[in-house]
Amino acid sequence: MSEMSRERLLEVVRHVYDARDPMPEGLVERMQDAAAAEVSGLGLDLELMLLVEQLEGASVRGESATRRAAGTAYTLRFTLGEVDLLVRVAPGEGDGSRVDGWIAPAEEMTVRVLAADQPSRATAVAETGRFEFAGLPQGLLRLRFEPQDLSRPPFATPTFEI
């Protein structure tokens, strides 16, 4: 059976079930409400970290990009309550930049790189509180942290430039 006819047959199957057993009226709206209520009910709205220190010629939003063209590594420090985050950015040439992070106190969580117009990337924070991303393109990004402990909401850095 050719790929084309298989796709067409599956299209027929989608079509008949869509017509004969459509989702109930208002289901999407009810689910949107339920999901939004769960986010706010659990207190999972994103919290914002503060940039408290920048070392070795860090380039933060708004600053000229010429500085990072020099290719020197720099370090940013962010805090949120008890949480302390150090991010070391090593600008790269062809294969992209590298970000090394240390977060304390260490706990089980996922860290994501969020950059405009690009798919997010994620990794687990190690038991030591360390994480790393390599091959990042130049531009603005944020780091987002999602503790596995649901009593702790996710939090993110402000936007910074690499």
Binding site: M23, L27, Q32, A36
Partner: peptide, 28 residues
């Protein structure tokens, strides 16, 4: 999903809007 992760709550609404019809069919 990426928009929601970037703190755009409309992203969650859109994700629910896009995937709920599929989930309905799969569950049924």
């Amino acid at each position: 999903f990426d928009r929601w992760l970037a703190d755009d709550e409309e992203g969650l609404s859109e994700l629910v809007g896009v995937m709920t019809p599929v989930l309905w069919q799969v569950v049924r």
